[in-house]
């Protein structure tokens, strides 16, 4: 609610540090893709790195770290809802492939 938080000017150093971190993670994700860890682990690793990159962008480039609580909530709600959509839809596919019921399907 306070204006001072909104006009908060973030030092350029923060942006530069974020950028360096993003670049390091980009190198890391490409390097990791060459390491044979198995489908599951590799996919999870690539996703985790992407998630970290996204969080850096949201917190620093998009100023959510310095935002009001309202901005915090609205920046989180979309991602939270995606989890719901993914979890419920994918659960159908998981059960469809592992549980076969007589007379169903």
């Amino acid at each position: 609610m306070h204006g001072s938080q909104h006009s908060h000017v973030i030092p350029i150093a923060v942006y530069l540090r974020s950028f360096v971190a993003l670049m390091a993670l980009l190198v890391l994700t490409i390097a990791a893709s060459h390491v044979p860890l198995g489908t599951g682990v590799s996919s999870a690793l690539a996703f985790t790195i992407a998630l970290i990159k996204a969080v850096i962008v949201v917190l620093y480039f998009m100023h959510v770290r310095y935002g009001t609580r309202l901005v915090w909530v609205w920046s989180a709600v979309g991602f939270f809802w995606l989890i719901i959509m993914f979890a419920i839809t994918l659960s159908d596919y998981v059960f469809r492939s592992i549980v076969r019921v007589q007379g169903w399907q």
Partner: peptide, 16 residues
Amino acid sequence: LVWGHHMFVSGQSMYA
């Protein structure tokens, strides 16, 4: 959280 009740006979898994 309830959209699947439109799909009981659509071929979604019984557990869903």
